[in-house]
C-alpha cells in the first residue's frame, strides 16, 4: 500500500465567464491513502480549489458522468487507478465536442445521434398479460450491448465521429441500434436498417477500433457495427 504521496497534474482549464481562451494548469495535490482512483484525486483537488469543474456521480463506473481524456486516452475518472497512472496526469475534455467549462463538454450532438436510432423497443402486437417469452440463448444476444452507460468515451475517440458528428451515428449510437436489432422482441428491423442505409450514418465506420480500445465497460461497438453491416448485405441479396 502506498501512503501519502503528491501527484502532479496538468489540467485543461476554461471558464468562459472569465477566460479569453483555454489554458493548461499545472497543479499538484497530496493524496491520502484512501484516494485510490483518479476521481478521488479530483475531489481532493476540488477541495483545494473549488473552481475546478467536472461531472461525477456514482463513482463506480455505471452512470457514465466522469468521462474525460486521461493522458491522451478517453476513460472514466472513477475507474482509473492512481497506482498505475503516469505523471504529470494530463486531463482534457473529451475530444470533438464543444467545451462548456474545464473538462465539461456539451454532449448535445452525442445524444442527438443516440436518439436518432430510435432507442426503444418496437413491438406492435397487443401487450400480453404476462411477459413476452425469450429464450436464454436469445437473451444472451443482448449481452455486450445493453450494458452501455452512454459515457461517450467511444464516440469521442472515433475519427469518423470527429469529422462528421452530425452525419455519422458513431459507435455508441450504433451499438444501441444493434441492441434493438438483436432483440427477438423487436419488430422494427427493416425500419431500423432503412434508417442507417446511408453513406454516412453507418458506413463511415472504418473499423479503426478506437471505440473498443477505450470502452470502460469492455464493450465492442465495432463488432456490433459489423453485424449491422452483415444484416444490410443479407437483406440486399
Amino acid at each position: 500500500m502506498s501512503s501519502k504521496r503528491t501527484v502532479q497534474f496538468k489540467i485543461y482549464r476554461y471558464d468562459p465567464d472569465k477566460d479569453d481562451k483555454p489554458y493548461m494548469q499545472d497543479i499538484s495535490v497530496e493524496l491520502e491513502e484512501s484516494d485510490k482512483k483518479l476521481l478521488d484525486a479530483l475531489v481532493r483537488l476540488k477541495a483545494k480549489d473549488d473552481t475546478l469543474s467536472f461531472r461525477r456521480s456514482c463513482r463506480e463506473g455505471v452512470c457514465g458522468s466522469d468521462a474525460m481524456n486521461i493522458n491522451g486516452k478517453n476513460g472514466l475518472a472513477c475507474l482509473t487507478s492512481m497506482d498505475e497512472i503516469a505523471q504529470p496526469v494530463v486531463l482534457r475534455p473529451l475530444p470533438g465536442l464543444p467545451v462548456i467549462r474545464d473538462v465539461i463538454v456539451d454532449m448535445t450532438q452525442f445524444f442527438k445521434q443516440y436518439h436518432s436510432i430510435k432507442p426503444y423497443l418496437v413491438n406492435n402486437d397487443p401487450a400480453p398479460e404476462r411477459e413476452r417469452l425469450q429464450s436464454p440463448e436469445d437473451r444472451e444476444e443482448l449481452n455486450g450491448l445493453y450494458e452501455c452507460i452512454l459515457c461517450a468515451c467511444c464516440s469521442t475517440s472515433c475519427p469518423s465521429f470527429w469529422w462528421n458528428p452530425d452525419k455519422f451515428v458513431g459507435p455508441a449510437g450504433l451499438l444501441a441500434a444493434y441492441r434493438f436489432l438483436a432483440d427477438t422482441r423487436d419488430q422494427a428491423t427493416s425500419e431500423r436498417l432503412d434508417n442507417l442505409e446511408d453513406p454516412y450514418r453507418l458506413f463511415r465506420c472504418h473499423s479503426i477500433m478506437n471505440c473498443v480500445d477505450v470502452c470502460p465497460k469492455n464493450l465492442n461497438p465495432t463488432k456490433a457495427i459489423g453485424k449491422i453491416k452483415d444484416m444490410m448485405v443479407r437483406r440486399a441479396v
Binding site: L133, S135, L142
Partner: peptide, 19 residues
Amino acid sequence: VVELEHYGMPFDRTDNGKI
C-alpha cells in the same frame, strides 16, 4: 414488472423463457 418487460427491459430468462 411485466410492463417494464414490454418496454424492452432485458431481464435474464428462465429455461422456459420467463423472467
